[in-house]
Design a binder for these strands. Structure first.
Length: 226
DNA sequence: GGTTCTCAACTGTTTACTTCA
DNA sequence: TGTGAAGTAAACAGTTGAGAA
């Protein structure tokens, strides 16, 4: 396959494999990625040997299960920490080092990427659950606060809105639609008490909101000028 | 011995790129 | 020279099946 520069951008990673200061030389011709590197056979096959792999694909013996050795897994993990995808050269080098077929290295990386994505999704799910819980609690608290303020209802001095200059009904809680500030009127002899509700967002909120589009954050961003 | 879980390997689809008419 | 179809390779999502717990 001819790998173009643009497609390389996602794959081309500087490999720093232990034991390889530079990619090992490979014959450019007759390079079969499914060919077992010479001197192999150290991988731990549970059932049959490597040689009858072809038959398993066309109704031969059942497919056998390979268990990677601890050393192989460690090296693969180490490599995965450095980069999550491999270019063909890196794949070949790693396969040679692990005494595996390049195809097996490729499959391992695919499965590993899938596992880490699953783990990430689970973490995000957990985070969103906790966030939901904290927002629910906050909502409950604010509603209680509204009830208390309503209970304190006093006389109706007219108060002007800080934004529209329209008269506001006294003793009410209003939310400015543009800046989301809660304006309480009628509590302090006609003065206007403005408080900003603080939304408790854990540190990862920004990361997640970029994906899920948290409404609170979005509206906060859009009303920055208020 | 049956069930559940893990994981290597497979299949089908999508995407990006090259080649060629 | 520009363009669309065909071919190719790689990544991904989903699934399968063997083996371990």
């Amino acid at each position: 396959m001819a790998v173009s520069p643009s497609s390389i951008s996602r794959l081309e990673l500087t490999i720093s494999m232990p034991g390889f200061s530079s990619p090992p030389p490979f014959p450019s011709s007759d390079l079969d990625i499914n060919q077992l590197p010479s001197g192999t056979g150290e991988e731990e096959w549970i059932t049959a040997g490597v040689e009858d792999e072809e038959e398993s694909t066309n109704g031969g013996p059942p497919r056998k299960k390979l268990r990677l050795s601890k050393e192989q897994s460690l090296l693969l993990e180490e490599s995965f920490r450095q980069h999550h995808t491999l270019n063909p050269r890196q794949k070949e080098a790693l396969a040679l080092q692990l005494k595996l077929r390049p195809r097996q290295v490729e499959v391992w990386f695919q499965n590993r990427r899938a596992r880490s994505k699953l783990k990430q999704t689970e973490m995000e799910c957990e985070y969103l659950k906790r966030w939901f819980g904290s927002l629910t609690e906050q909502n409950r608290r604010l509603q209680r606060e509204v009830e208390e303020l309503r209970a304190l209802k006093v006389g109706p001095p007219t108060v002007m809105s800080p934004h529209s200059c329209e008269p506001l009904p006294a003793s009410t809680l209003t939310m400015c639609p543009s800046c989301e500030r809660v304006t309480t009127t009628g509590l302090d002899k006609g003065s206007t008490k403005t408080t900003t509700t603080a939304v408790a967002t854990p540190t990862t909120a920004a990361t997640l909101s970029s994906k899920v589009g948290t409404p609170a954050l979005q509206s906060r961003q859009s009303s920055a000028a208020c």
